[in-house]
Simulated scan of single mutants.
Amino acid sequence: MATLTTAGPRTGSDRGIYTYIGVFSAVLNTVLLIAPVIAGKLVERYGVTPVELGALFSLELASFSLASLPAFLWLHRINLRTATYLFTGLVIAGNIASGFMDSFPALMGARFVTSLASGSIMVILLTLSGRASNPSRAFGIFVVAQLAMGALILAVFPALYAGTGVAAIYWTLAGLAALCLLAVRCIDGDALRSPSRARNYPDADAAAPERGRTKVPALRLVLGLSAVLLFYVALSGVWTFIAQISAAAGIDLSASSLVLSLATVAGIISALVATVLGETPRRRAFLLAGYVGMGISVALLFGAPGLVRFAAAAIIFKFAWTFILPYLLSTLSDLGGGHIMSTVNLVIGTGFAIGPLLGGALIQSTGDFTGLLAVALAGLLASMAAVTATQRKAA
């Protein structure tokens, strides 16, 4: 098997891909994970309504989706290292500028540009994950890294930045993005320029480049993408407003922050388990169990949950969510197609955008969280049915 001759570390190996994925996903995917912290700070500074708050997160997360559109043109043509340096620079500048914005519309503009750059790097992360010899493990690292960073921020920020505004969060993210530049050399910049480069990965599955040239059956593609869309609509809608659900139930802010931190730790543990297991013949069973767990957790949030019920719901929700996510993404990567993961990123961003916006509208129109939770529960059930049908078609 051919090997790469580029200088430095084994940039073409799975080890280099895993390092790059872990470092960048830890920083660039924290928007939704720290939404409960940022949401309160934004309300304090700008006095936004639930709809405006949901619109900001929807706009920011939708830009992740829009980044996939130009990626169809540049992903297989531009050196990945050069692209990463460029987009990371934009992320740094955007986060710095966000801290200085005095008006809410200006902040929305800055967050749109910042997330567009982050989404461009996300396309690279997802595509390289699908090219690894063990996609489920690569996607597991993708999830674990961002959860670990999210847990750290949720645990530290409420106390460390209690007397400061949202700017401190954005500036911290800018500094972390700058540190990510050290991991750029871990990948082969020309890895995606042609199928022949993919064959040069010393640890890669020989079937990976073949998947990239396989024509994707239309029905399986629609089912798989529908499963991802509904999954992200449900989870983003619930998680964005989970702190508000806690507050409406009369739970103290410090207790709620502790619960959310513990939930994120539980999510890290479950994602680590999925990462260690990697590809497994039990993928379908794991997916079904995870969906059932998420459904139970959403059901526990109905009404005005006490501290114990809220804690159980949040922990189960995060544990199940992060356990099944690597298997859901690897199911899509198995469909093949040269731009399948770019399309998945487009769908993820769309789901992220719809969830908070729909959730904010439902909360404001009904005056409580019943509508949001009912829609989320229905979305999870539909997503479970779609991914199950996708796997049956694959079999």
Rank of each mutant, 00 (worst) to 15 (best):
G367V: 01
H76N: 12
R309F: 08
T264D: 10
R45P: 14
I38S: 08
S13Y: 01
V259F: 04
L260P: 01
L4Q: 13
S270R: 02
A234M: 09
I34L: 03
T343W: 06
V144T: 14
V233D: 06
P305A: 04
R197F: 04
P356Y: 00
A55F: 15
L287C: 14
I245H: 08
A183P: 08
I34H: 10
P195C: 13
A138N: 02
G47R: 08
F100V: 01
I124V: 13
T172Y: 11
L301C: 10
G371E: 13
A83H: 02
R309W: 02
Q244M: 10
L42G: 12
W239H: 07
S13A: 05
Y18R: 02
S261R: 03
G351N: 03
L125G: 06
F72N: 02
V308A: 12
S256I: 07
I251C: 03
V23H: 07
L61A: 12
L262N: 11
S58R: 06
V276H: 01
G338L: 07
R10G: 11
C180K: 01
F157M: 10
T240I: 05
A138Q: 03
W321P: 01
T322P: 09
F352Q: 11
V276R: 06
S129Y: 00
A148S: 12
S383M: 15
A248T: 15
L75S: 03
R197H: 08
I92T: 05
T88Q: 10
A71L: 07
F157P: 03
A248K: 15
A248Q: 14
A313N: 04
I17E: 00
I268S: 02
A374C: 04
G237T: 07
L182N: 15
I38Q: 08
P195H: 12
S103H: 11
R309L: 13
A312P: 14
R282D: 04
A110V: 03
L362P: 15
L223R: 00
P135F: 11
Q244D: 15
R211E: 05
K318P: 00
F24H: 07
R15I: 09
S246E: 03
F317P: 01
L126K: 01
T366P: 10
S103L: 12
A71S: 09
A394H: 13
M294W: 11
D14T: 12
A117C: 12
I268W: 00
A394W: 08
G163T: 11
P217E: 09
K215F: 04
S63T: 08
S63W: 08
V31C: 14
T84V: 02
R284G: 15
P217R: 00
L380W: 02
L258I: 11
R137P: 00
M122A: 12
G22Y: 07
T11A: 10
L179W: 09
H339T: 15
A274I: 10
I363R: 00
V166G: 04
A93I: 05
A62L: 14
S261V: 01
